[in-house]
Design a protein around this nucleic acid. Structure first.
Lengths: 223, 223
DNA sequence: CGGTAGATTTCGTGA
DNA sequence: TCACGAAGTCTACCG
């Protein structure tokens, strides 16, 4: 990884046009072709960047990064006034990040414990297919079928998504009365409101609790 | 800005749990409290990070970054095995990025030239309010009213959004027959399909052309 | 390669 | 502070 600290001005033209007036910034060039321009503030995001694959052309006072072609051409021009530091560090790209607690994990926990959503509820199948994509969980109880959409955060979009699924599901024979439920770890008020209007149930759950229903939690902890 | 290159292991616990096995990485600490862990590949995103406001606690072999409290507590622990480099660079935070070509600019151009969407179309008002948020443009011609949703990229979500707006608009007196149009610089085929099914018009436009209708383009160029 | 859905989305804005 | 919508979203996955 190459780290350049330099006084520079940056122009980008592609999906939008942007100008970054002259100032001292960090230029990060990764070995995969990524180039990022970071200022000392502004948090997470680079002020400008280009993701791989890129074509990089460098001269004494200019670094030009390009990507795509024709109408999709993107171009990042870094005009360097003064270089304050320019170092390269060898870094074998380490192992991948291991995550736990993403939507997939929530879906698995619910597939294991559907009764947490409603008494007597059982899993029919995960990823129940529809023409526009799979519903996370198809369940059933004495009252009939229940299509469950799982999210980490319940939003209006999730309600819309489930609504579209239900349209197709209810067109199937034997599923005309299939109900819908949006399950999330946190629920936006407006999502709940829209869900009520659509006759869709909402439910908030806790991943750790769900797992506790099954077995002692066996996951990643802080040391 | 402080740049540390170190062999380290990182644990995050908060919105999810994650473990980053030991390897050589770049630790970027900005003066606003941001902390990012970058590997040499993986493009744009840091492998781990914490956005401000943060509480940072540092000892010889450990950097702990915390944020929030109670249920919303997030904690990033960086265990350092070996420091290969540790430098700090003074950087006055430069001026903001100036952008052109974002959705706002498109909306302004269309507000100036509604006739580009349909002959004889005139603007009634921008940001026409509904109970669930404002419609970008409310226009009218001899055939009646037209609600216009403006996007840079036309997607299914945009069609859904406009559909919701139209529901409320058509509930108003005098607007029962209001039509809808999705305008974008590029349109996803599936968005077009859904729009047709909903009786919503779609239209692609070019920002530079729109501006050309009014006056010679006066905007940001690459040098 | 295009489309979709998820993300520790982040980030801005307006109420 | 909260909630919503845009973003050069980015990224993984699936066809």
């Amino acid at each position: 990884m190459r780290l350049i600290v330099a006084h520079c001005e940056v122009h980008y033209r592609g999906r939008v046009s942007s100008v970054l007036p002259p100032a001292v910034r960090l230029l990060m060039c990764k070995s995969d072709g990524s180039v990022m321009v970071h200022s000392d503030a502004g948090g997470y995001k680079p002020q400008n960047w280009m993701t791989p694959p890129t074509r990089i052309e460098e001269s004494a006072e200019r670094i030009v990064v390009e990507k795509g072609s024709g109408k999709a051409l993107e171009r990042l021009e870094i005009h360097i006034t003064e270089i304050l530091s320019d170092v390269t560090h060898a870094m074998d790209e380490g192992p991948r990040l291991e995550k736990d607690g993403v939507e997939r994990d929530l879906q698995e926990a619910l597939a294991d414990s559907p009764q947490a959503l409603a008494e007597g509820l059982r899993l029919v199948r995960r990823e129940y297919p529809t023409p526009i994509g799979p519903v996370d969980l198809m369940c059933a109880d004495a009252d009939g079928y229940l299509a469950v959409e799982v999210k980490r955060v319940g939003t209006i979009d999730a309600v819309e998504q489930l609504t579209r699924y239900l349209e197709y599901i209810r067109a199937e024979r034997g599923l005309e009365t299939c109900r819908g439920m949006l399950v999330a770890e946190s629920m936006k008020p407006q999502a709940r409101t829209l869900a009520v209007a659509r006759g869709i149930d909402t439910r908030t759950v806790d991943l750790a609790e769900l797992r506790g229903l099954r077995e002692p939690e066996l996951t990643l902890f802080m040391p």
